[in-house]
Design a protein around this nucleic acid. Structure first.
Lengths: 178, 178
DNA sequence: GAGATGATGTTTCAGATGAAACGATTGTCA
DNA sequence: TGACAATCGTTTCATCTGAAACATCATCTC
């Protein structure tokens, strides 16, 4: 990390003090969408590293396992609903998990376009190893917030998310680092 | 919604406790990293759409403009520090902004490897158009939260982010080679 | 039924991403 | 000085991403 040597050069350009009146100058680091994005990406990266090195899983794969591990058998569409992921991403994560032997498809009794997805016994063992790790990592990474603030943050995010879903053209999606 | 098993514990860092028996089942939608990622992504998409359709800018480009618009001239490294973006992403955003005539490079007086980046007059005009839009969109998208909750959320995120930056590289017993 | 329309999941394709390699320059030290 | 390491920003390359096209099956309408 080097110090900016622009100290000598910053004076000439007027700091662009928003002409239209007395609004405070725009500050990116106080801009909520920016804060959200940066923090979420940092968090995602930490988890991606943990899942990747210990279990060879990406975040999409982990999410699929998470819903199948607790929700029982369901279709790919059900996974899409519950993970807020794109159907393409779910499709690929399911294929990857199947190739790893963590997941099996069985024909849907009422719809031959679809299939029921289920963790294999091996997949369930992996899932049960991941859950404690995920909880511990969550606890460690959010340790600065006490339990109260953590709950508060979760609640604020849930409220904000619900609102965004209403306002924002219902664009289902969740992404990872980016 | 807050059935955290750690509710009664107040010590800041739960020591990786593998609760053997009676933990509640894992629920993805109550998992903070997931909530953060989903919400941040929804928000980013809304802004990307707004910037893209109105100004032909991507989010990385907007961020570069934001720091140059308020911070005056600085090097690409300075932009990296202030935007928390990868240097590759900054490099490409700068090139794109230069191609659009929103930004100009001028040689750094003390280091010929680098250059000082600055908004052009046209770029500044665009920036001044974006800021009110960005503020209005932020206000609209976060309207469910009152001003207090919004500030609270920003504060929690800032605290969390600072912690992630500290802890970031040394996560839980990560001693895996390769 | 036959045909049209809709739903489900996969594949394609063009763009975005970032780790690593790279050229150019600056800093360090014998 | 000369050699070597470090830093700045760009480029390369392999991977990830999702909109759109696609193949398949289901449902609706006549």
């Amino acid at each position: 990390m080097k110090r900016l040597s622009t100290a000598d050069r910053t004076s000439p350009v007027p700091p662009l003090a928003k002409g239209s009146g007395d609004e405070p100058p725009f500050r990116l680091e106080a801009f909520l969408p920016y804060r959200l994005s940066v923090t979420a990406n940092r968090m995602s990266r930490a988890f991606a590293r943990a899942y990747g090195t210990r279990f060879g899983l990406g975040i999409p794969e982990w999410r699929v396992m998470a819903v199948l591990g607790t929700g029982g058998a369901m279709t790919a569409g059900g996974v899409v609903e519950r993970t807020a992921m794109d159907k393409v991403k779910v499709s690929r994560a399911v294929a990857a998990l199947e190739a790893k032997g963590h997941l099996a498809r069985r024909p849907h009794p009422e719809d031959r376009r679809s299939a029921l997805l289920e963790l294999t016994a091996a997949g369930r063992r992996v899932f049960e190893q991941i859950v404690p790790l995920a909880r511990a990592l969550e606890a460690e990474l959010t340790a600065v917030l006490g339990p109260d603030d953590r709950a508060r943050l979760a609640e604020l995010l849930a409220r904000l998310d619900a609102h965004l879903r209403d306002v924002g053209d219902a664009t289902l999606d969740a992404g990872d680092p980016g």
